[in-house]
Each structure stands twice: as structure tokens, then as C-alpha cells.
Design a protein around this nucleic acid. Structure first.
Lengths: 325, 325
DNA sequence: TTGAAAGCGCTACCAT
DNA sequence: ATGGTAGCGCTTTCAA
């Protein structure tokens, strides 16, 4: 490993000088600078970030804590985060929490031990003062919380929009699929839809589900049509479930959207690949990732004038599982 | 920040002693140990990994370099890697290369600067000695290369299996979708299928595609049926394309698998959610991630007796886009 | 404009 | 069994 000392020796200067050209601060003569640059090139020197981090008590590392990268909503988010952060030279420490408090804690601790300068987290556990004790810039992802800077889209509004859309399009016997109870955004969507449904002149039923996983989505879809065979409108808890419902409806010989309309949530890329393509409520995942990263960066830089919380728009994406007009 | 000094003071011992109990080495009296433990608990001490890393010249960090986490094959892989590594206390530095050499280089450099102890990488650029100069345990992911430890599945075999399966099931006018030329595994699959196709009594055509992205998959599928409207068997370059082809075939009123059979590649979770469900050649992504992580770990620990390269099985998964004999 | 040296938090060697 | 201390590679005063 070639260190700053080697460069100093090669250039015939002191390490202090090398450090100065490295960081572009302090006075350093033009010819000295040139010598140092050359030495660095010759030796293929690249500074040891760990040593830097130790002295400065901060790194170019940022922690990203996600529930599960395997859920197709999150890769988009993660990509948005990474693309934005890497522009400024930051790198990502990744952790999957599985919505599990202990894992979350563990990751956060190791992130801190590694001197991350900021944290992006999609969590359900803020109340527990877990995050309060952290003296670290934090941006809540996907989920809004009290005084923390957050980037999210309003699940309540989105859920309401889904319900309203289905009602407008003539669904009379709606089935509302409720996501896992311990996941905040799922609850928000559910409540938003409930509010609208309750005030409208439609029958509706609720199907409770306990996970967001692919494997189980199929089971939920089967259950749905067994319990509510006559439903003519399904509000899915997310697109995966929506796609599973399409599958099951087709299997049962139902015509979409004539017999049953289906509306998803998230707008993951595969929505436009299903057949029929899935109408859904879009959350701009990639953009949310980007904005969250930007917000975090601005907080790190101490630009306190910036918006501390961003609500991203939800939007109905009309495809072919809902009736036109 | 509470440091080892604080603990030492609190416990009335030297930092050396604290370090010893921390690392469980050297002699330390039972009561001293107890005092130190208590002090650590009281102060909520947790060791600074950066300082450790600086001294020991190694960290508990591992670099994971992926082409694009947004491609549904990779989240599975990544999860496998993470689940295995986190068991041993390692954390992941993540980078997306977009199959781009420059990004790849940049990430690798920063990984090294951050003292990662190992690297997992899915790359097409080994020949360039990029990796040779790295004095770092490396495991190639998804793609096998000469002398590097690798975990992969044989694309050649998989491609051949896809072709053979389709032929066995009676397809006569096969369209082979060729993935991007610069992506090794895509080429391998293609060649494997070509070999089989060439030696069989079937007509076949090749459709070249240039990306693995969702947005473009739809376009390729449209193109496919325009150029080869009478094809009765499609070997897709991956499941995304496969699902897009299902979509397009249905849109054109074709009956699957009677009019046209389709076979995907990878076995991403959404295969069983499409309608009809997509028959495919399975690569065990999650398991590959796990095995790669284990292999890397064993190399790091210096267990040289272990297998240096693992070939994972490919397997035909029969679903509903191929005929039941 | 440059260099010497302290110190970031920790580990490991050498004393005792 | 315990403590003192050098040093990991770097940045940043403080002097010169």
C-alpha cells in the first residue's frame, strides 16, 4: 500500500504539503503542487479513506436501511439514492431490516461504528427513540415521521385515490386488500381507502394479508376469490398482489376489466408487462430515492434553509385493468 | 463519542486491558473483566470500527458490485449475499456498475480505499487486469472467469436446455432472443441455444436485443412478432423479455402454449405471477448469493482447501407457457 | 510557502 | 495479569 509518506518522499516534500494538495487547502506553491501531483501519479497513490475518516470523524459513507430489497419497489428507490449520492462521491452501506427492529438496530449500530455521515431509513419504529439518540443526519424514506426530515408519498391520499377511482369507474362490490398491519405505509393506504369507501354507496369487504412476499401473494389472490367470488373491484395492497389477482381472475375465467376491475399500488416496472397491464397508483420510487438523497446531502452540508420534508405526488396510472371513462 | 479511554477511566484500568476484553485475547482477570464489561455497559460503549480498521488494515466491510439492482435477478442474489455475510458480522458496500467499466473501476477503488476485506463482483471486464492488481479476495458472481473463484451457473448449458426443451415440446419455428452482446452470461446462453438449434431439424431466427431493461422489453416483444409472426416457440433472453413476449402474444390473440410456446431465463419470482405462468430455466439466484458469500468468507479466512469455484445447477421449470408433452 | 508534530481510536508489543 | 506506548495513514495547528 502506498501512503502519503511515500508520495512525500518521492516528491521531496513533507507529508503536510502532500495533504494540502490532496485537499486543495492551505498555501502550496505551483511547482511544488506539480511535483506532488506527479509523484502521486507515478506511485498510483490513492488516499486511505479509513485514516481520513478516523481523523475527521466522518466518512464518505451513507447508510441505507431498507425493509427488503427483494420487494420490487425498493430496488428503484435504492437506485435513485445511489445515483444521486455517487455524484457527490458518497458510497452506500446497505442493510435489509425485514421490518424487524432488532436487525434495524444492529445495522444502525454498525453504520455508526463505520462513521457514516448520514442515514436513509425506511422504518416503522421511530417512536422507540431509536433514532432520537443518534446524532446523525437522518432522512426517513417512504414513511413520514414527526420531526424527522422525510421523503414520502401520502399513502392515505393514494389509498383514497385508488378507492375513488374504482368507485368512479363503476365498481359496486369492492374488495379492499389490507397489507400487513405492522407496516405503516400499508396501513395508511388502507385507511385512506377505507375513508372513501365508507362514505360511498358501495358494498365492500376487507381481506387482511400478512406479508408482501411473492410466494404468499398468490395464496391471497386465491383466498380473495373464494371469500368474495362476486367482487367486481379489487384494491390491491401493492402491485405484486395486484398482479397475482389478475392471474387468479384470469384463471377463474373472469374478464378484466368487465367482470372485475383491479387497481394496484406502487407502479413497479412489471405493471406494464402484465396482461392486461395493471392500472395502479404510482409512487415515484426512483425519484423518491433521488430526492431523499439530495435532502440528506443538503442537511449534511448544513443548508438548513432547505425543505425538511418532501411529499411526493401519488397519481393514478390508467392501464387495462380498469374501465375506460 | 465514548472511546476506549473513557471506558478505561470508568473501569479504573488501562486502555490495553479494555482492548483485551474487547477482543477476547491476552490475559485478563475475571474481576477486571467484569469491571470493564460494566463500564462498557454504563457508557454504552461501542468500538470505533474505523480506528480498528486503520490499525488492522482490514474491516468488516465487503464490496458488492452488481450490474443493476433494478434487474429483478439481482435483488435475490444480493439478499443471499447479505443474509450470509451478516451472520458473520460483515456489512455490505453496494455499487451498481451498469456494465460500465469506468463506474466499475471507480467503485472498486473506493471499496479498496475503505479497506473492504473482500469483493463480490458481477463483471464482464476481467481480462483488463483490473482485478489482477487487486490484492484482495475476490469472488466472481454470476460469471465465471479463468483463475478467479466464481459462483455461477452454466449459461451455455442453460441456453442449450432451453432450446432442447422447446424442440422436445414440438416447436418448429423457433425465435431465439439474443441478449446484449457485451454481457457475458447473455452470450453464453445464446451460444448454448445456438449449438442445440443448429443441430436440430427446426427453423430458427435470431432477434438481437440491446438491453435488459423493462421499458425496452416491450418493444423487443413487439418487434419479435412483427418480424417473425409465425414463430411457434420463443427462447427469451431472460424472464422480463419472456413476460413481455407473453403480453404481446396475448395481445395478438395467440393462444399460449398452443400457438406459441415461450421459455424464459432466470426464474425471477414474478414468473409464477404472470398469466399464463412462465416456464423458464432457473438459476438459483438467492442460493448463488449465499454460496458466493460463503466462498468469499472461506477465502478470507484462508481456508484454501475449499472449492474455489462453484457451478450451480440450471434447471427447467415447467409452468404454463410450454406444452405438457 | 513549507515542515514538524500532535492526535483521531484502537491494537499489539514490550515491560513489569 | 496489567500498563505504557508506538504506530496504523491522515489532517491540522503551530512555527519557521
Amino acid at each position: 500500500m502506498v501512503t502519503i509518506k511515500d508520495v512525500a518522499r518521492e516528491a521531496g516534500v513533507s507529508v503536510a504539503t502532500v495533504s494540502r494538495v490532496l485537499n486543495n487547502n492551505g498555501y502550496v506553491g505551483v511547482d511544488t503542487r506539480k511535483k506532488v501531483m506527479e509523484a502521486m501519479a507515478v506511485l498510483e497513490y490513492s488516499p486511505n479513506e479509513v485514516a481520513r475518516s478516523l481523523y475527521k470523524r466522518e466518512s464518505k459513507l451513507i447508510g441505507l436501511l431498507l425493509p427488503d430489497i427483494t420487494n420490487p419497489f425498493f430496488p428503484q428507490l435504492a437506485r435513485g439514492v445511489e445515483d444521486e449520492l455517487s455524484k457527490s462521491g458518497y458510497r452506500l452501506l446497505l442493510g435489509n431490516s425485514d421490518e424487524n427492529m432488532d436487525k434495524e438496530l444492529e445495522y444502525i449500530q454498525t453504520f455508526v461504528q463505520n462513521h457514516v455521515v448520514g442515514l436513509l431509513t425506511a422504518t416503522n419504529h421511530v417512536e422507540d427513540t431509536l433514532y432520537d439518540s443518534l446524532k446523525l443526519p437522518i432522512v426517513m424514506l417512504d414513511r413520514a415521521y414527526g420531526h424527522y426530515p422525510s421523503v414520502y408519498s401520502d399513502g392515505r391520499e393514494g389509498g383514497g385515490l385508488a378507492a375513488k377511482t374504482l368507485i368512479d369507474k363503476g365498481a359496486k362490490r369492492i374488495t379492499l386488500v389490507k397489507g400487513p398491519a405492522h407496516i405503516r405505509p400499508a396501513q395508511d393506504r388502507f385507511k385512506g381507502a377505507m375513508d372513501v369507501l365508507s362514505e360511498a354507496d358501495v358494498d365492500f369487504a376487507v381481506l387482511a394479508t400478512t406479508s408482501y412476499s411473492f410466494e404468499e401473494a398468490k395464496g391471497f389472490a386465491e383466498e380473495l376469490f373464494i371469500k368474495y367470488p362476486n367482487t367486481d373491484g379489487v384494491i390491491a395492497s401493492n402491485d405484486i398482489v395486484g398482479i397475482a389477482v389478475i392471474h387468479q381472475a384470469l384463471k377463474l375465467g373472469k374478464v378484466i376489466p368487465d367482470d372485475v376491475q383491479i387497481i394496484g399500488y406502487d407502479d413497479i416496472p412489471q405493471c406494464s408487462l402484465s396482461y392486461p397491464t395493471l392500472s395502479t397508483i404510482r409512487q415515484p420510487a426512483y425519484e423518491m430515492g433521488r430526492q431523499a438523497a439530495r435532502l440528506l446531502l443538503s442537511i449534511i452540508k448544513g443548508e438548513s434553509e432547505c425543505e425538511r420534508t418532501m411529499q411526493m405526488p401519488v397519481e393514478f396510472i390508467e392501464r387495462n385493468t380498469t374501465r375506460k371513462e
